[in-house]
Design a protein around this nucleic acid. Structure first.
Lengths: 187, 187
DNA sequence: CTGTCCATGTAAGGCGTTACATGATTGT
DNA sequence: ACAATCATGTAACGCCTTACATGGACAG
């Protein structure tokens, strides 16, 4: 259960409400760990039950109460332990590849439409990642010794590098399907 | 629910038992769609209920009955329909990247151990994919017009290309963490 | 005689998604 | 006047995993 640790990670930067956590996820790690709101609230309840986070109710006149969560010493310990633990390699699931794998059952025309669609999606994603990355490059110039900033931004590099490779493959696949020359690559 | 369609895909090649399907998954698409046995049996029951596959019970003296599943015309239609439908881009989840993102909370030594571990896993995976790929290269030489074979093998190319890119990134990350020079890449 | 392969499933639980529900404040 | 933002959650469902259960055949 990695969501738990992502939450501990964010809260170790600073105490937050569930709502703010949701925004933190969307702003920063959505590209490798999306989380939705109900999941965040449920996990916060679990973490509180396990004594890994504490909750502070802030009453506000005229508005709903706010619950601010912060990491306990036990939570910080557990986070560090997990961060230091090598994980088994992750299972990968990509429905689009099922379509390619069984693609012989549809004609070129339809197959290429599916491939082009995927290509557009990938190009959009890459453009997004690159623009985010550009901003961080500027930021890191002004704080070149920030290990924290560097590590967090490096996850975007991962997204760019692997999606770029996937895109190149996809473009080559489209060409080969179109030309009917079913040659494999050399690695 | 993509598992459903992967099963229809396999059964459209030839009728099989649940057990044989499990082996087919493990042999061929595990790298982008792992499936376990209980899941396969449950999904076969669902597909039968929906009239997309038919089941034939084969009684064998001395041994347990065998249930052979085959695609119905409705199933074939549904498969073709799905194969032709562009899918929204898939959410990606990679717990290892959570460790990198919050890596500033552990010392270099431990962080590098985690990174090196991932590197080993990736190298193992790549070696596996490449050896499988090599075999298919041979096979495709003897049947150079096989669109079906080409498309299915191309999914391995995807795995090799994107994991190769991830590995290169990881090696560079390890170097940068070790040297303490937190420079970003140019894309 | 022990383990692996063939072949079938059930049970329980965890993780994640989607939809629903409430209600005040702030911006257009 | 209406939509978006802030802020909290619940309910129901779906998919996947892990563990459990059965039992014959065959190989070392």
């Amino acid at each position: 259960m990695s969501l738990k640790y992502a939450i501990l990670g964010f809260l170790s930067h600073q105490p937050m409400t569930g709502y703010e956590l949701k925004k933190a996820f969307d702003r920063s790690i959505r590209h490798f760990w999306p989380a939705n709101q109900s999941q965040i609230y449920r996990t916060l309840a679990d973490l509180t039950g396990d004594g890994l986070v504490d909750m502070e109710v802030i009453e506000r006149e005229e508005r709903l109460d706010m619950k601010v969560y912060h990491v306990t010493p036990a939570g910080r310990e557990e986070l560090v332990r997990w961060l230091s633990t090598p994980l088994p390699i992750q299972d990968y699931r990509e429905p689009f590849l099922i379509q390619v794998y069984f693609g012989n059952q549809i004609p070129d025309e339809k197959l290429i439409a599916v491939l082009e669609h995927e290509r557009n999606e990938l190009e959009g994603l890459l453009a997004l990642y690159k623009s985010l990355y550009g901003r961080y490059q500027q930021q890191l110039k002004s704080q070149p010794d920030s290990r924290a900033l560097f590590l967090s931004v490096s996850t975007l590099e991962y997204g760019i590098a692997s999606n770029q490779a996937a895109l190149e493959w996809l473009k080559s696949l489209i060409e080969r399907v179109q030309s009917g020359e079913y040659r494999l690559k050399d690695f």
